[in-house]
Design a binder for these strands. Sequence first.
DNA 1: CTGGGGAAGGGGCCC
DNA 2: AGGGCCCCTTCCCCA
Length: 578
Amino acid sequence: MELPNHAKQLLLQLNQQRSKGFFCDVIIVVENALFRAHKNILAASSMYFKSLVLHDNLINLDTDMVNATIFRQILDFIYTGKLLGTDQASEQNFNALLTAASYLQLHDLAAVCRKKMKRIGKTLHGKLIGPGKPGRGHRLPSAPVIQPRYSGSPEALQRLQAGELHQVEVTGDELYLASSNKGNPHSLGQNGGTSKSSNTNNSTNSNKGEHEQMLGLDLSKKSPSVPPHMSQEDMQLGECSQGGSPHPASVSTTNSAPFDDGAANPHKAENSECPERSDLASDAQILADTGQPKGFRLAVRGGAPWLKQEKVYGRPEGANCRDEGASLLNGVIMGPLVKSLERDSGRHFEHAVRCKEEEDDEVEEEEGGEEENGRECSEDSAQSGEEDAVAGGGGGGHGYRPGQDGFEPAGYGDNLYVCIPCGKGFPSSEQLNAHVESHTEEELYLKEEVDGGLAAPNPPYPSDSRPYKCSVCEKSYRDPSTLRQHEKTHWLSRPFPCNICGKMFTQRGTMTRHMRSHLGLKPFACEECGMRFTRQYRLTEHMRVHSGEKPYECQICGGKFTQQRNLISHMRMHTSPT
DNA sequence: CTGGGGAAGGGGCCC
DNA sequence: AGGGCCCCTTCCCCA
C-alpha cells in the first residue's frame, strides 16, 4: 500500500511549518536576513548543510556566495522542489543561483540552473566554484564538528552575537536584523578561539557574564548546584536548554540564537506552549539540543519533564567522533569509531575502538600482521601514567593485548587475543570483544572470589585491608565494586558512549561528566566573580585565585602555586635534563 | 621569540 | 552517582 502524495504532502506540511516557524531548529544568517528552517530538511538536501547543522543552530553563509534574495529562492526550492520567481529571471540571477547552489552543494539545483542557462543560450561566466567550496569565514566540511566556529564571521554576525542586532520584523521564515547601534565591546572572537582568555581573566569574567546575559544567558548569576525545586537531572537539562555553552570546545557560542527572549519568535512560543515534545525528545533532537541548547530554551525551561536523561545516552546517527581522530569529510563522518558505531548500532556494549591507530593495528593483526606492542593512540597518551604503569607498559592499559607480559596466549595457537578473566584465546579482537561482553560483572566478581584474589603477586597493599585484587595488574581494593570498576579499565570494551561525540568511557560518571562539557553545564559558580565550573573541585581550585592561597610549594625553590598540577609542571622544570 | 607561570578544560580512576 | 584527586594539555600573559 502506498499513498500517492505522501511525500508531497509531507513536504507541504514542512514548508507550512517553516513559514510559521513551527519546529524550526536552525537559523541561517544571510547578510542581514535570518531564515528559519528545519535541520532535517537542510541536511537531507545538502551534505554541506548536513555538516553545518549537525551542531549549529545558527548558520552564517558567505555573502560572497549567496545573498538573501538568492537564498530565499534556494530555501523555497529546498522545501518545494520548485524554483520560484524565475520566470523573468535574468542570466545574472541564474548565475547567482548556480554559484550559491554549488557553494551549498545543492547539486540538483545547480544542474537545473546550468540547464536553464544553457537553454537561454547564454555563456556561463562569472565564478563557478567547486561543489561546496566554502567561502571566507566558513568552517570547512572537514573540520571537526564540535568546535568554535565562525572565526571569521562577518561583522553582522558578531554584532548579532554581541546583542547589538535584533530582529525587528518577522516575515514568515525570515527575520530581518536591525542595529541598535549600541557599542559593544564583546566580540564573537572572545567566545571563539580565545574564549579561554576571557575565562582566565577576571576582568573579562565580569564582562563574560554581561555578555551572556545579553545573549539571553544568565550564567553569571550565582546559583546553587541544584535549585531546591529541581533535581540534578532537571538542572542539567534545564541548563542545557539555557545553555549557550561558554565552553569553547563543546558548543559554539554562535549557536545562541539572538532572539531568545524576543517575543517575535514564533517557534519558540510554539515550543514553549507545546506539551507534546516527545518528538523533540528523540535522540536526534537531543543531539541538536545539546549542541544548540539556545534554540530550545523556553521549550525546556523549568525542568523539561519530557526529556529523559537516558535519552542523552542514546546513540544518534552520525555521532561525531572528533576526539577519536575521525574526520568529517563533506559531511560524511569518517573514521574508525563511526565504523564501529555503524557496525554495532543498537548494541549496548560497543566494540571499543579507541583510536584510528588502534583499529588499524587490529585490522592488520586480523589479516595476519603483528600488533606493535606499546603503541598507544594519541589520546591515550594523554592519560595518566598510572594506567600505563598498571597495564604493564605502553599498551594503553588494555588487558587483552597479545604478547603482553604475563598474557602470552600459550597453548592457544593462533588465538592471540586472550580474555584475562577466563583465559580463553581468540583469533581476533572482535571475537574477543564479543566474548568479553558475555562476561557479566557478577561472573568476574565470582571468579575473583573463587580465585581468592591470588592472581596478583606482590600486592602493593596489605591483603587484609584490600582483599580484592585485580587479576591483570597488582592493584587491590577494599570492595568488589571498586575492583569491578577498575577491571573495566583493562577491557577493550567501553560501555558508556558519549551521545554527542561518540567517545567511549569505562565509567558512567566520567561519561556524564564529559557530557556536561558538551552541554555547557556548569553548576558550580564562584561567589566572587561568577565564573562557573563543571566540577566542584575546579571551583575549590579556582577560589584560591581570590583567596591568594597557594598551598603547593616547591621543595626546591620554594615557589608556591595555587594548583597542584602547576607545581607538578613546575617540578619538571627542575628535573628536566636541560 | 621563548620559557615560565597562572588558570582552566578534560579524562582516568579511586573512594 | 557523585566527589575528589591525579595527570595531561592548552591558552594566555609576561618577563
